[in-house]
Simulated scan of single mutants.
Amino acid sequence: MAEFQFQQIDVFSAEPARGNPVAVVIGADGLSTEQMAACANWTNLSETTFLLQPTMPEADYRVRIFTPRTELPFAGHPTLGSCHAWLAAGGQPRGNTIVQECGLGLVPVRAHNGCFAFAAPPLRRSGTVQPDLLHRVADGWTDNGPGWLSIMLGSRREVLALEPDYAALSDLCIGVTGPWDPIHDGQQAQFEVRAFAMACGVNEDPVTGSLNAGLAQWLIGSGLAPRHYIASQGTCLGRAGRVHVDQENGKIWVGGVATTLIEGVLRL
């Protein structure tokens, strides 16, 4: 049995235990894929990550990301939580921007005063959904790894009122967004987001960086959102997620607060 540094990070909320948790195993190079998958199934969080030595010379560290059911090439809140854990464990970036290596490739990450942001990876797929899916959901793909089917509704109220048939949509990952009404909803955010990730073994994810990254590229690119906005997510789960989106020099950054809530030793 080997011992590993372990942290559980709350991401995308300034309020403790009201964001999205990610479990991070540090120095996990000695673990097999099967051990990582079993550990992620055991934590039963939406994602568990494993920090490894990089294989690409440009990278500061490498991460593998697992849901309870499968491995992902990229995911947003695990990227921010993993970067936070890597720095907390003594990681030293080579430059002003931290470079993460993951299944999708290299992802730049910025860190400042407890806030973290990643540069949104290019969409692997975009455009209209296949006709046979239109009657089940609708509207557009924003795929940067997990394969999100993204839908925009008319209001925050409509988004919060959704009651999905999880069994009927069990093979899909569906993201839904709708605008806040500043008069009725306030001005803390401009969009409400919900993420239904049944295909990854998670009915509803509390706060989802990869989905928000894909949505931002779609919404800003089509003129439906400003270059800088805040998305609220996790409301129906009792969370207070806030995702900050900024378009700078043609690149979209997705970020929020990350805080360590659990720290200790994992024995595998």
Rank of each mutant, 00 (worst) to 15 (best):
L72M: 13
L72Q: 02
P73L: 13
A75E: 15
G76Y: 03
H77N: 08
H77F: 07
P78G: 13
P78W: 00
P78H: 06
T79W: 13
L80S: 07
G81R: 00
S82Y: 08
C83L: 06
H84E: 14
A85K: 03
A85L: 05
A85S: 11
W86C: 10
A88H: 04
A89G: 11
A89M: 00
G90D: 14
G90S: 13
G90A: 15
G90M: 05
G91F: 09
G91Y: 10
G91V: 10
Q92W: 02
Q92K: 10
P93D: 09
R94T: 03
G95I: 05
G95N: 13
N96Y: 08
N96D: 14
T97M: 09
T97A: 12
I98D: 01
V99M: 12
Q100E: 15
E101A: 10
C102G: 14
C102N: 12
C102Y: 06
G103W: 01
L104I: 15
G105S: 15
G105P: 09
G105H: 04
G105D: 09
L106K: 02
V109N: 01
A111F: 04
A111L: 05
A111P: 01
H112V: 11
H112M: 10
G114H: 02
G114V: 02
C115A: 13
F116D: 02
F116V: 00
A117I: 15
A117E: 06
A119F: 04
A119E: 14
P122Y: 06
P122W: 05
R125Q: 08
R125W: 11
T128W: 11
T128A: 14
Q130G: 09
Q130K: 07
P131I: 01
P131Q: 15
P131W: 14
D132K: 02
D132S: 05
L133P: 09
L133E: 06
L134D: 08
H135R: 08
R136E: 15
R136F: 12
V137E: 07
A138T: 08
D139S: 06
D139F: 00
W141Q: 06
W141I: 08
W141F: 04
W141V: 07
T142I: 05
N144D: 14
P146I: 13
G147E: 01
W148N: 12
S150P: 09
M152F: 00
M152W: 01
M152I: 00
M152T: 02
L153F: 03
